[in-house]
């Protein structure tokens, strides 16, 4: 019981996820700054930001829905924390695993997006309203390719468990080469999921200030920001577990490999963020439906055929 609780709350659960999330955010900002010829923030910056927001006054707008306004950040964070339980950090030892947890993870992944939408909606500010509508519109664009790209490898592995997939691919690494298109689709739509440039329309600073979070301040904003960095860890871990399966069986070595893999995913995402202009909503939807989705569909068909041959 105690060990299960430790697993869920400390390592590799919530506490580890938050700490690693803050570190990944630092890495992301540092790489982004270096790519722009700046020196970037010091290593403790995300932690300082988080602590500062905890100490700030929390203002709730008079015409916002008080209860929803308070509860949504917590829902968002807890959904991400729950999803992280099913993702393997150490080899073969996620905090919990069962057949079909991939579906659960994907399902839980939509909750932060939906709570962001609701947060904007209940803020009753024009910028927040437009931002939240964009959040939802964008979700319909990237969700399909993201799901399909994550499901395609599952077809070959013939398991719906993240851990199972990771095991299958680490035993048969060559099969993984088949999934390379899906890997890139997942990375790019993952960028959309995380609402980072070029898909940062919901919080497009120059258009709608800060999108759904425009009215949030203090602790509630801190929780939302924490939820965003945890989502970053979750996406990076999920992609590296499904598409970069390299496992040795040695827990320490696997943990190191996990760090390397997630950081590699993050570097790619940071590069993507720095090299592109923000897309417009119509361009983003077109891009997702005309380019990403067909690639993912073709991937699924190929994987189905191969599975039939096997």
């Amino acid at each position: 019981m105690l060990s299960a609780l430790t697993k869920i709350l400390v390592f590799p659960g919530f506490l580890f996820m938050s700490a690693y999330g803050l570190f990944l955010e630092y890495l992301d900002r540092k790489v982004y700054a270096r790519l722009q010829h700046r020196s970037g923030p010091p290593w403790y910056q995300p932690l300082a930001d988080f602590l500062k927001l905890l100490g700030k006054e929390t203002i709730i707008p008079a015409n916002a829905n008080q209860r929803m306004f308070r509860i949504l950040p917590v829902i968002s964070l807890s959904a991400v924390a729950t999803a992280f339980i099913y993702v393997p950090v150490l080899a073969k030892a996620p905090s919990a695993s069962f057949e079909g947890d991939l579906i659960i993870v994907l399902y839980l992944l939509t909750i932060p997006t939906v709570s962001l939408f609701l947060a904007g909606w209940y803020s009753r500010s024009v910028y927040a309203t437009i931002g939240s509508v964009r959040t939802l519109t964008q979700m319909f664009a990237y969700e399909v390719p993201l799901f399909m790209a994550l499901l395609a490898p599952a077809l070959i592995a013939q398991t719906w468990s993240v851990t199972g997939m990771a095991e299958f691919y680490s035993q048969n690494p060559l099969y993984h080469l088949l999934n390379i298109p899906a890997f890139f689709v997942a990375l790019i739509s993952g960028q959309g999921k995380l609402e980072r440039a070029p898909f940062d329309l919901p919080e497009a600073e120059t258009e709608i200030v800060a999108g759904p979070l425009v009215e949030y301040s203090g602790k509630l904003l801190a929780i939302f920001k924490m939820s965003a960095v945890c989502e970053l860890v979750l996406i990076a871990s999920l992609i590296s577990a499904v598409f970069l399966p390299l496992m040795t069986g040695n827990p320490l070595l696997d943990f190191l490999l996990y760090l390397i893999k997630t950081m590699a995913v993050l570097l790619f995402l940071a590069l993507l963020r720095s090299a592109m202009a923000r897309l417009r909503m119509d361009q983003m939807i077109k891009f997702c439906w005309r380019i990403l989705t067909p690639i993912a569909v073709v991937q699924i068909i190929i994987n189905l055929v191969i599975r039939g041959v096997l």
């Binding site: 722009q36 010829h37 440039a197 940062d200 497009a204 600073e205 120059t206 592109m276 202009a277 923000r278």
Partner: peptide, 16 residues
């Protein structure tokens, strides 16, 4: 202009 379209890298480069 780069900043307006969310391309901060261009912004940083040209201001450098």
């Amino acid at each position: 202009a780069g900043h307006e379209i969310g391309f901060d890298t261009l912004f940083m480069y040209s201001w450098r």
